[in-house]
Every structure is written in structure tokens, then in C-alpha cells.
Amino acid sequence: MNPEPSSPLNQEEAPAPMWLIVVFSLLLYAGFLYLDQNGGGFSPQVYAPYRDLADLKTYQPSRGGDDIIRLGEQRYVATCGQCHQASGLGAVGQFPPLAGSEWVTESDPARLIRISLHGVQGPITVKGQEWNLVMSLNATSLGIADKDLAAILTYIRQAWGNKAPAVNVEQVQAVKDETKGRAVQWTTGELNAVPLKK
């Protein structure tokens, strides 16, 4: 009935040495630190050398041009672009072109802003061609915010080879104030009477 004397190796009460616990804790800490810094938040879209999604976003290339142009393009396609087309070329017999149009690229946008706010009707000459239609929808009826309209106008003045200065929100609001109460489309006669700054 004598139990075998336990060998020194089998000391069941042997405590784990303190230094080992400290080393393991430090290793664990370093491991988590490394994961935290290089794990990309465990996102499947974050690869080295990017740190995390936010970092990755700062490296996204712009598709040419700046933010205002991109906003303008987006908003244009959903509004004016339904008629004047994404290409800006309009449609034969139905919608005149904006690409290369002198109404769009005039350096002072006073007339352009009026057209987009209330539309035009009756005879109008665009790039030497006569049109006689009604622009029945416009920025007011489409509910386009001033900021978005400025972006749209900036876009159509600089897309498709058009080259004209940007339009800002203040210019849109100024014309809105001047034309308060107007509801009907403009005619070319009225538009030509609008004084332009050179």
C-alpha cells in the first residue's frame, strides 16, 4: 500500500516561474499590438501597405477633375441630362445641344442661370441652328438645390470640350433674387436684354 515516492520531476505543486508568465504576457501584448497596427481592422479590403479603410479611402484616385465637377456630372445626368443627354449633344428636333452651345459657354452665366431656373421657349439659335420648342422642365420644377445647380452649370460649362469659368452658389442666388416671382419660360428677346458683365 506504499505509494511510489514521486520523483522530483513529478512535483505536482511546482509553480510556473514568474519570469515565464511575464515573458508570455509581453509576447501576447506585442502580438495584439502588431495585429492592431497591421491587421487592417480585419477588413477583407485592406491590404498592405494600407493601414485601414479610412487610409485606403484617401488614396482613391479622382476620375479627372475635382469634386464639384463630379457632383455636377452626377446631378446633371439625373436632371437636365434626361433631355439634353449625358453626351450633351441633345436630340435631333427635340432638345438642343449643350456641348459647344454659346448659351452655355458665355463667360457671364447670367443668361444661363435664367434658362436653367425657368426654362426657355420660342425661337432660339444654338450653334447656327434654329430651334423653336419649349423647355418645360427646369431647375425650379425639378427641385434642384442652388448648390447642386451651381455644380451642374459648372459641369456643363467644362464638359464635352466646353471651356467657361465655374458658376458659384452666390451667382445662382443673385439671379434668383433678381427674378423673384417669375414662373414662365424666358424668350430669347428677354434673355438678350439681360446685361452681361464682361
Binding site: 505509494p3 511510489e4 514521486s6 513529478n10 505536482e12 505543486e13 511546482a14 509553480p15 510556473a16
Partner: peptide
């Protein structure tokens, strides 16, 4: 204190 696998002394021998 770590015990070897939580076993009692007489179970360790083998």
C-alpha cells in the same frame, strides 16, 4: 499554481 492537467498524484505515475 499550475497543476499538471488537474490530475491527482496517484494518477500521474504511468
Amino acid at each position: 499554481m499550475l497543476r499538471r492537467g488537474g490530475l491527482l498524484p496517484h494518477q500521474i505515475g504511468g
